[in-house]
């Protein structure tokens, strides 16, 4: 006796479609929380804070890459992991055993990308500053 295969195939295809549509192939997205600058009608204010800000300057290099520089410091980090390490070295936080640096964890950190820098690098610089445990991180207006 021949079992009726077509009905079974029907159901198996349905199950296949079900699992294909429910599967999630893209990696999960997460959030980085940012405090926006507040104040006058201007988009961002020029910083007139008593503390010296730590400026991270990003400029485009080639089609997709970018150059990282910390204003006033000659070493240029090659990547964002190196930037995070450098930011830790520049931090003064005796509670965490960081006594070499000149910037407190709540010193303003300003990320200053040029207009042509890709967003991923900007987000990466922000992430590096968060990893180094700075709490007051801002984005500068576009500089040409």
């Amino acid at each position: 006796m021949q079992p009726n295969l077509s009905a079974m195939i029907d159901v198996i295809f349905l199950l296949l479609i079900y699992f294909v549509t429910t599967a999630n192939f893209t990696p999960d997205e997460g959030a980085l929380t940012v405090k926006l600058p507040q104040g006058t009608g201007k988009t961002t204010q020029d910083l007139t804070l008593p503390q010296r800000p730590l400026n991270i300057v990003l400029s485009p290099a080639g089609e997709v890459e970018c150059r990282i520089r910390i204003e006033g410091y000659p070493q240029a980090p090659a990547g964002f992991a190196e930037l995070a390490t450098l930011l830790v070295q520049l931090q003064y936080d005796p509670e965490r055993g960081r006594s070499s640096g000149a910037f407190k964890p709540d010193s303003p950190v300003v990320i200053r990308p040029k207009a042509g820098v890709r967003w991923q690098h900007v987000a990466n610089a922000f992430n590096a500053a968060v990893r180094a445990r700075y709490t007051n991180i801002n984005f500068a207006q576009v500089s040409k």
Binding site: G30, A31, L32, V34, Q38, A123
Partner: peptide
């Protein structure tokens, strides 16, 4: 910012 929002969340993987 002009809409009076003080905190945003940037999405990344």
């Amino acid at each position: 910012t002009r809409a009076g929002i003080d905190t945003i969340n940037l999405v990344a993987f």
